[in-house]
């Protein structure tokens, strides 16, 4: 698994796409941060957390809805085209280790991008902000939430033979999960509403951003990760049929 992880990460880090995405990410989040800090002067009696950080983390999560399909669209498509996926599948690594190695490589890239965004809470720290519990909880939420996007992207890449189509499928699926929130809000049935709300990753993410870590959110994210890894495994295994 480590061999796969190392190779994937090295290839990603030597690609200009990763650095372009980093630049886009930090440019947009920087602008949002600046705007929120300026706007926070208008609100009296509310904290920096609710005025600046919660909207900023929400924006980061939304931004990754677009960035993650771009990062993951090539996960399996290029390997299938070059025949290297069959080489990996014939090796002693095993399919689960291939999937986990690639997943960890994507997560490492995303963590690298998130580390860049740490400068915003640090800037606030110089102005006296000290609620680091919420910041850590929000970053944990971001990693878990973006993990679901990564796995959706990897799954789309495993079922598609073209990276553009893979990116499109990935974005459509992420958007579909987001729509569950709208469906939950518009449902008249309480149980159905609760169920749809539970299935939507954004509602779980909001708990983390508010520093309110719930065990059922962990169960949700871990189940989501496990389920999509299984889907990817089945999809890749079907190549042997």
């Amino acid at each position: 698994m480590f061999n796969i992880y190392k190779r994937e990460l090295k290839e990603a880090m030597s690609s200009p796409l990763f650095y372009i995405l980093c630049a886009i990410f930090i440019g947009i989040t920087g602008w949002i941060f600046y705007y929120r800090v300026l706007a926070s002067k208008e609100f009296v009696g509310s904290s920096l957390t609710s005025n600046v950080l919660i909207p900023l983390f929400g924006m980061i999560s939304s931004l990754f809805m677009f960035l993650t399909p771009l990062l993951t669209m090539n996960s399996f498509v290029e390997e299938k085209r070059c025949g290297t996926l069959d080489l990996l599948m014939r090796s002693k690594v095993g399919l689960w280790n291939i999937i986990i190695g690639k997943y960890l490589s994507h997560i490492t890239q995303i963590i690298f991008m998130l580390i860049l965004s740490l400068m915003f809470p640090m800037i606030l720290m110089f102005s006296g902000y000290s609620d680091w519990g919420i910041v850590l909880s929000a970053y944990l939420g971001l990693i878990l939430n973006i993990s679901t996007y990564v796995l959706i992207g990897m799954f789309a890449s495993s079922i598609s033979g073209n990276q553009i189509i893979s990116g499109f499928i990935s974005f459509s699926m992420i958007f579909g999960v987001l729509l569950l929130n709208l469906a939950a809000n518009s449902s008249n049935n309480f149980i159905v509403g609760q169920l749809l709300s539970y299935l939507n990753n954004n509602s779980h993410f909001l708990h983390f951003v508010q520093g309110d870590i719930r065990s059922f959110s962990f169960v949700y994210f871990i189940s989501f990760i496990g389920l999509f890894m299984m889907f990817i495994n089945k999809s890749l295994n079907s190549r042997r049929w």
Binding site: E11, S14, C82, G83, D86
Partner: peptide
């Protein structure tokens, strides 16, 4: 088609 990583 030889299974090669062209960037390696």
């Amino acid at each position: 088609i030889p299974p090669l990583y062209k960037h390696m």
